[in-house]
């Protein structure tokens, strides 16, 4: 059973928010704890999938925004 505090550190580790000393300790734990390593692997997989789930807006919308900004600059 993995402690909740360790699970939270695992989340911070996966998202690169763990302090250096805590990260080193967790990486040592990952080498010796298969359950923790499996959890880490699963989290990284879902994270990568979520990162890939972005949507791109149309060029027309982007041009509208940029043109609006330019028009304001011309007025001032």
């Amino acid at each position: 059973m993995i402690k909740t505090s360790t699970q939270n550190e695992l989340i911070q580790y996966v998202y690169n928010e763990l302090a250096d000393d805590a990260r080193e300790q967790l990486e040592i734990a990952l080498m010796h704890d298969n359950e923790l390593a499996d959890d880490c692997s699963d989290l990284l997989l879902i994270q990568r999938l979520l990162d890939g789930a972005t949507k791109t807006p149309s060029d027309r919308s982007i041009n509208n925004i940029l043109n609006y900004s330019k028009s304001l600059s011309l007025q001032s």
């Binding site: 789930a53 972005t54 949507k55 791109t56 807006p57 982007i62 940029l66 330019k70 600059s73």
Partner: peptide, 20 residues
């Protein structure tokens, strides 16, 4: 300070996350 290219860079950098 009036640099429109800087704004274009900001928009392109963040448009996907804002849209998503």
């Amino acid at each position: 300070s009036g640099n429109e290219n800087a704004f274009e860079q900001l928009v392109n950098r963040h448009k996907n996350k804002v849209f998503t």
